[in-house]
Design a binder for these strands. Structure first.
Lengths: 227, 227
DNA sequence: ACCTGAACACCGTTCAAGT
DNA sequence: ACCTGAACACCGTTCAAGT
């Protein structure tokens, strides 16, 4: 609508890439397509970002800033030491909500090779919660590694089909062939499959599984630090 | 040396790709470079594998077959229910040894979108150990998801610098700038850094951290199933 | 049955050039 | 200061063609 040309900035480039990824997947994010999204030539982007890696780092940073907004900042207050657990848990489940809005994000984050400033501040806040809760820095350090990607609200599934529908189809065909060699899995599918019902994610209810694994770790950490 | 030309097979293609990745990283694995490794043109590969994704699936399958050899097969024997924990732990730490021989493997596995037959048989054996140890299929199912990539012997690190040396340099420069905003991390580094010594992986001893997280989960699972 | 050559569409990125 | 056009090296992949 407007005739005036808004000048490009780093952040407009990042935002455009996020929108593109939300709409068409992270694979559709190329220098050329992001530029097109902004009504500009591909080479213009290089004036604002060093290269594609820097662009993708910026995309991740943008997502964590979205999380920061959601949380109303990374600052926290702890009145009692016992509060670290619900505080950490709530923060992580909020991170998960952000990730669920950008389903391509976990795979992207796993390919990152350097930390972004916002990410560091977020992780610092999680560590801060543990320390305020009575953890030593040493145990806090181990805890952060044990949580791993769960800090950001996603579980590292070993295989994540692009399209859950298509993946399920293919997997089932393959499972049928391999069935004789997979006695326990077949039995598990038989026993667990028809129990679900309200899960929107097929017979694996990822939210419940995420929380199960998260609580296993949080309970274990609680025991490590008080025991 | 030999004048006779060994005909190409799927498995020779996969093996060549593994060797190439070991030598030059997974980024160096292209259809053209794998073909060159085999003294053949790139297009010849398409006679044996459907496309590059299939090739990479085959590479992963090859690694898990290496693990199978190491374990002397995926079969297992459990005399007492209590044995599930050391059995599972040992199997996972063996998987980790295989991964340490192929440091590019975790990143590759994380990009996979479909299971491979050997991988399925391996995971089936882990599930079988749990069930033989007294787990219900339902709890076993949750346990497998909670373990996630740890089943294969690697931890879901959020950022894994390509070159640990280079990564450390850059990170430290960035940490210095951000230090005022990262009070807890700076404190942690100060307290934990000079404790290490025999760690070959910098001030983060990944092996110890992996085992800490693994045991946290195994202990938690033990409690879930007997409690 | 197995391999090849030429060609295509698509990348990220450079560089000198425009305004 | 900000953006562009043309060009380069490199991908995965096709297709018809060779032996």
């Amino acid at each position: 609508m407007s005739e005036l040309r808004i000048p490009l900035t780093k952040h407009r480039v990042f935002d455009a890439a996020v929108e593109l990824a939300d709409r068409s997947g992270i694979g559709a994010v190329t220098m050329r397509s992001v530029a097109a999204e902004l009504g500009v030539e591909a080479m213009s982007l290089y004036y604002h970002v060093a290269n594609k890696e820097a662009l993708l780092d910026g995309v991740v940073d943008t997502l964590i800033r979205e999380l920061e907004d959601e949380l109303g900042g990374f600052e926290f207050e702890i009145d009692e030491q016992a509060e670290w657990k619900p505080l950490l848990r709530g923060r992580i489940l909020t991170a998960r909500e952000v990730m669920l809005r950008h389903p391509w994000a976990p795979a992207l984050i796993e390919t990152r090779v350097r930390m972004t400033p916002t990410m560091l501040r977020y992780l610092d806040s999680l560590l801060g919660i543990l320390v305020a809760g009575g953890f030593s820095y040493d145990l806090g350090h181990y805890a952060m590694h044990a949580l791993g990607s769960r800090s950001l609200g996603f579980n590292q599934e070993l295989f994540v089909p692009d399209d859950p529908e298509a993946g399920a189809e293919e997997s089932e065909a393959m499972l049928a062939d391999l069935a004789p060699q997979l006695p326990h899995m077949m039995q598990m599918i038989a026993e667990v499959a028809h129990e679900g019902g309200d899960s929107t994610l097929g017979w694996c209810d990822y939210q419940a599984e995420f929380e199960f694994g998260l609580d296993l770790l949080l309970d274990g950490l609680e025991r490590s630090h008080s025991g």
